[in-house]
């Protein structure tokens, strides 16, 4: 089962993130980033909390939930729904593809029994793709959470996945 964030945690976290990055319009993306990092996704309930703390008509800053939703849904590293405990992001850009990525993503799909974009029933894995991660010199490449794996062959996939509980 995928875990959803709790209301109290959300308020606390938003408070911290706003304190850290400033109650400013241009701090919105770093703040969303903190929340995404902490929960693995951005709970919609966090948006009004952020808005309340940044909206400041006296300083000419007007913010609505729609602004935040709009920004949060734009960026690929943010998710608006809960993901699995471990998130795999496979680079599907041309260099990795040319260097053998096609076989590796197939191996990942087979091993996990997931299509791209899916989260496993038990909430352990989410299999996503990403655009270039900038380590093309060691392609094919994928990320498991924050760990990056390069020069991957399909044979290595089971061993790498086994490292995660």
């Amino acid at each position: 089962m995928v875990q959803e964030a709790k209301a109290l945690d959300i308020v606390e976290l938003v408070e911290q993130a706003v304190a850290k990055h400033g109650a400013r319009r241009d701090a919105v993306i770093p703040i969303l980033n903190e929340i995404n990092q902490a929960f693995g996704y951005i709970p919609t309930a966090a948006l009004p909390e952020i808005r309340r703390r940044i909206h400041a008509p006296a300083e000419g800053v007007f913010l609505a939930d729609s602004h935040l939703y709009s920004a949060a849904s734009f960026y690929q590293l943010f998710s608006l729904k809960p993901l699995g405990r471990h998130v795999i992001r496979f680079c599907e850009s041309a260099p990795c593809h040319v260097m053998g990525g096609r076989q590796v993503i197939q191996a990942l799909q087979n091993e996990l029994g997931l299509e791209i974009g899916e989260t496993s029933q038990d909430g352990k894995w989410s299999l996503l793709t990403t655009s270039c991660l900038g380590v093309c010199g060691v392609g094919p490449v994928f990320l498991v959470d924050d760990d990056i794996y390069g020069n991957v062959t399909s044979d290595q996939v089971p061993e790498i996945l086994a490292r995660y509980k």
Binding site: R25, N33, F74, F78
Partner: peptide, 26 residues
């Protein structure tokens, strides 16, 4: 320092500026 959040388009300078301002990178 400012971290992006995954959008190729933000390499385009005006999209980057929008993004820096806390908006969609369009």
């Amino acid at each position: 320092p400012h971290a992006g959040a995954g959008a190729y388009i933000c390499g385009e300078e005006t999209a980057l500026i929008e993004s820096l301002e806390g908006k969609r990178g369009m």
